[in-house]
Amino acid sequence: MAKFLNTSATNFFLEELIKNAKERLILISPYLRLNDRIKELLEDKNRLKIDIRIVYGKSDLHPDEIKWMQKLDYVRLSFCKNLHAKCYMNESECIISSLNLYEFSQVNNNEMGILIRKYEDDEVFKDAYEESQRIIRISDELRISLDEVKTAQVQVEEKNDEDADNLSKLTSSKLAAKHKLKTADLLDKFVEKGFLTLNDNGKHLLTEQGKAIGGEFRTSQYGGYFLWSESLEI
């Protein structure tokens, strides 16, 4: 019988689902940003040669995610246009939930989901598995060159840094480098401090508090970026 999951239960059973995978693991989530705990679990499954399929639906995949996945021989990544489903399953359990992978362990969000076990609800589990396979079939498996991704990222950062220099402010990447941090870690710190927030799509937005300390959001043909005072304390 299906089990209802609240926010904390969804996080707990998702971690257990990944840990308990013996043959296969399917992770379907529109927004893909893996935290260290998820990466640790997937690295362990990769060492055990478990077949892992990850399907996401938004094209703004961070180069760091691609770089990490390219090191894992048993992880296959696919892109599915117009994906909105969130489904996570191994050979015996399935979670259908509002939880995106980037929200894992963010207990401040209000999530709901259901846990389906094959031995309890075989027909429902089978239907979920078949639909997951259909999504995988219509998805494009990625063969991305990391060098191409790095080149594009550097070009964007260099252009944005050039624009920032003209305004006597630093982009997030330059401010992060100044403090010997990764850009993603800097953005996480600014979320904690209340300078930025994440919307439902996983995008960073400048808050009123961020504006008050001099933060700005700019757009160019290369995309959006944040500007910060060089003297801003981290």
Rank of each mutant, 00 (worst) to 15 (best):
Q155H: 10
E91M: 05
S98P: 03
D60A: 02
K159C: 08
S172E: 05
I136Y: 08
Y74W: 11
K193R: 13
E148M: 13
L101H: 04
N11R: 04
Q221N: 15
E111P: 01
L175Y: 02
Y56P: 02
D185S: 07
K178S: 01
T197I: 01
L146I: 09
K71G: 08
T207Y: 04
Y102G: 02
S92K: 15
F125H: 00
A128L: 09
E148K: 15
D140F: 06
I114H: 06
P63V: 02
L48D: 05
E216R: 09
Q106G: 06
D51Y: 13
K67C: 06
Q106H: 11
L205V: 07
S145L: 10
I54V: 10
A184N: 06
N20G: 10
A184V: 05
S172M: 03
N11Q: 10
D121N: 15
S29L: 01
L142Q: 15
Y119W: 15
T207S: 03
Y119M: 11
Y88K: 00
F190V: 01
L83H: 01
E208C: 05
M1G: 11
I95T: 08
K81D: 11
F190Y: 03
K118P: 05
N201R: 11
V154E: 14
L101F: 12
R137D: 14
V154G: 07
H62M: 04
T7E: 06
C80F: 11
K71F: 06
K211L: 11
R47H: 13
D60P: 04
K203C: 04
E103P: 00
E141L: 11
H84F: 02
G224N: 11
Y74I: 00
Q153N: 14
N160G: 03
D165T: 07
D44F: 14
R37E: 10
E130S: 04
C80N: 10
K3S: 05
R218T: 08
S173A: 15
N108S: 14
